[in-house]
Design a protein around this nucleic acid. Structure first.
Lengths: 198, 198
DNA sequence: AATTTCCTATACCGATCGGTATACTCGCAG
DNA sequence: CTGCGAGTATACCGATCGGTATAGGAAATT
């Protein structure tokens, strides 16, 4: 039950990895199933042995990567005390996640902002909403604790997420200098968000 | 020279409008030429009488809409005195532009953030870079004028643009409440950017 | 040793893609 | 009145798409 199912899992992994590479580079619609097969070194019936169709590949990628990063993020943020610490942890973790494998956020942004993929619609929305709600709650707590001036928590969360995500998006899209998503940038964002530019 | 070339221009316009609608809804790759023909109520040879190929349609759309909005923006921003006024004008103009016809920014964002369209690559980058540089220069001036604390102008510009563009992007993507991209939101963004959340 | 699981190889399906070709109509302009 | 520009109608091209069918091989489990 171990030796053969192990190699089967490896093949499945190769397929997912190839799909991640190609989807993130060219987009879902522009990537043909045959491209994936070639990249993975596998034949067509094999793919359909592991996945129902092309859309299942994308769905599997999204659920795996986004789900695990989500839990990590919530845990790390919760372990901080101050609003400044929480926001820094949020930005840092997001940056590290992108530096580890830029293909993942690139696929996420491309799928989220790019043309609708009808087969997936809603899945990604639910996950991004969850991440956004995490930040909203964070802002609410900080306001009631007196750490932030009273104002709309959703507006604050949207603004902060924008400041974090746009660099992420830009970085994952094109080849940027190695040290772009640094801890310094993360802290600068938090500092600007809390203190303003004036 | 007027009567027939006038109706010809009208047909060309119908094609561009149909392409704008469909490209912005489904994305460039997912939109077939035959979809555009049906939407415009025109036959295939007619399209190829006005445009060389599918890519020329997208290129024409981008250059027209982005170019004209760009000039407008630069003029309006220049007519303001303070940094606060300039930033507000920037945000407001961007919002108004989106409220007027959400298809345009939606196409822009989708093309910019979505999967690469090889035929267009570079065109959109040049235009977004131009808009970004406008804001960078604005920040530089404000810093030398003592209106902003000294810090990296590119970082400030990126952060501010993120705060403005993300709502734009979200609004153009899905049906939001009518009054979402309001003057109040624009001012709130500028206020937050300048003064911080603390 | 027999059987099942995982996989290859190859060929095919109908549909759709972007783009072209041909032939014909109509109305304004010279 | 003649020619040309704008347009329709229709049919076709080769290529590629996602997905299926069939047949068989190698290896591990039983």
């Amino acid at each position: 039950m171990t030796a053969r199912s192990e190699s089967a899992a490896k093949t499945k992994e190769r397929l997912l990895d190839a799909a991640l590479t190609l989807f993130s580079q060219q987009g879902y619609a522009a990537t043909g199933i045959r491209d994936i097969l070639q990249e993975a070194g596998v034949t067509q019936p094999t793919l359909y042995h592991h996945f129902a169709d092309k859309a299942s590949l994308l769905q599997a990628l999204i659920e795996r990567h986004y789900g695990e990063s989500q839990e990590q993020l919530a845990g790390i943020v919760a372990s901080e005390e101050t609003i400044s610490g929480k926001l820094s942890a949020f930005a840092l973790t997001s940056f590290e996640y992108c530096n580890r494998d830029p293909r993942v956020p690139r696929l996420m942004f491309q799928t989220y902002f790019g043309p609708t993929v009808p087969e997936i619609d809603g899945v990604l929305d639910k996950l991004t909403e969850k991440r956004f709600r995490l930040v909203v709650r964070l802002m609410e707590d900080a306001i009631t604790a007196g750490e932030l001036s009273p104002s709309d928590p959703e507006f604050l969360a949207l603004s902060f997420c924008s400041m974090v995500d746009q660099p992420l998006n830009l970085f994952s899209r094109k080849a940027r200098p190695k040290r772009y998503l640094t801890a310094e940038l993360a802290h600068a964002i938090v500092y600007l968000f809390l203190g303003g530019a004036k």
